[in-house]
């Protein structure tokens, strides 16, 4: 399933499904497939498999846990040699989070990332996109304000809802 390779075999498709169902260690409501961090899976030989994983943020400490969880799932399904490689390019973007993933994030009280305008946040040296309203995951109000660009994990910002008064995390756009 690596870029440019042939269509996955039946075994590969099955393993991709299993690995995709692994929950994110920090936000267990969302799976790795929904987070969009799986880049490829290739069966190299009997019992030998290689998985490509991309970090959400460069220093995401959950990456090691993800790799361990993936290894555990694959070994419990008969794989004896599992390699989980980290790939940086092309860089992961919050646009890789699926619609279902966004819905689950909101349901868990984390405002999902907004779709990125082209050229926003960095790549073209442009400003961080902060213009679109972010909806409070508790009451649905769009009257929310930024408390801090940095929150409990690297990928989130801290906001407060002006309507219901609740602070909440926002999965910030990259």
């Amino acid at each position: 399933m690596t870029a440019g390779a042939q269509a996955p075999s039946a075994l590969e498709a099955e393993l991709i499904r299993l690995v995709g169902e692994v929950p994110d260690p920090e936000l267990p409501v969302i799976s790795l497939a929904e987070l969009g961090v799986l880049r490829g899976l290739e069966v190299l030989g009997p019992g030998r498999v290689r998985v490509e994983l991309t970090p959400t943020w460069t220093a995401c400490p959950a990456l090691d846990t993800m790799a361990a969880d993936i290894t555990e799932v694959l070994t419990s399904h008969g794989m004896t040699e599992v390699a989980v490689d980290t790939v940086l390019a092309p860089a992961w973007s919050t646009d890789a989070i699926t619609a279902e993933g966004r819905r689950k994030l909101a349901e868990a009280g984390v405002a999902p990332p907004r779709p990125k305008a082209s050229g926003a946040a960095g790549a073209a040296g442009g400003p961080v996109a902060l213009e679109l309203a972010i909806r409070c995951p508790n009451c649905g109000s769009t009257d929310t304000r930024l408390l801090s660009r940095f929150s409990s994990t690297a990928c989130k910002a801290l906001r407060r809802c002006a309507s219901c008064g609740e602070p909440f995390d926002h999965f910030k756009e990259v």
Binding site: P90, A121, R149
Partner: peptide, 16 residues
């Protein structure tokens, strides 16, 4: 690849 990934994160540092 690292630079392309990190530049987006650094945009937040600069903004801060």
């Amino acid at each position: 690849p690292l630079a392309a990934k990190a530049v987006v994160e650094v945009a937040y540092h600069r903004d801060h």
